[in-house]
Amino acid sequence: MEANAVVEMEGVAFSYDDSPTLENVNIVLREREFVSVVGPNGGGKTTLLKLLLGLLRPSKGKVRVFGKPPEEARSRIGYMPQDVQLDPRFPVTVMDVVLMGQLSSGRRFGFYSKSQTNAAVSALKEVNLYDLGKRPLSSLSTGQKRRVLIARALASEPDLLLLDEPTANLDLLVAQELHTLLKKLREKLTVIMVSHDLAFVSRYVDSVVCVNRIVAVHPTAEIDGEIFSQMFGRDIKMVMHDQHFKHGHEG
């Protein structure tokens, strides 16, 4: 066990059916690291997050979060899932959704307590959505909904934040707003983010976890087209084409 390791995966493998989704994954992430998970669709990015949450169990190897099995570390993990899986017409307000992040603490019965509500309010303020707290979730734009889901993850008062495609399918301006938010969050938390947004990744992220059945970790500075084409073949070139990725790197 390494000291101050937030996430450790050792020889982890996982498969939904006969063909393996992930094979021999070895990762160590330390406190305050900001890591991006990239890879082609179906390459196992979301699976990786679910293994860290203990929603899935590895068929081989060991997963440790804060030195514990994921199930025991959950209370310290904030999770933002992809929003496509949510029913867009579900009767729920923004505040209701954020409050769900507080569910593991406090009393078992009835409604939320004052301190739980306060935690949710400060999470909403953090993502600049306090004014929309009473609005139905269904009335929000996609970018706003993503921020609500981030606020819900923050309301869990986590030390590790897992974000599944927070910027997918957003227009540039909205994506930039989210980037500003993420930059702010990385100062306080360890963040693991699944993203297709290589321009952002190359600018702000400490290291990149490339997932395509096998997993490779690269410090962002080392990332170039070579590594990506090795990992993904033709898939990634299209993305590289319009994002001037190596030049954009400031770190």
Partner: peptide, 21 residues
């Protein structure tokens, strides 16, 4: 009594699981 639990289980099962429900 279990309003919060039912609410989250109806809305987002997976997230509920991550909160130890």
């Amino acid at each position: 009594l279990f309003y919060r639990q039912f609410h989250i289980v109806c809305f987002d099962e997976e997230f509920a699981r991550t909160r130890g429900i």
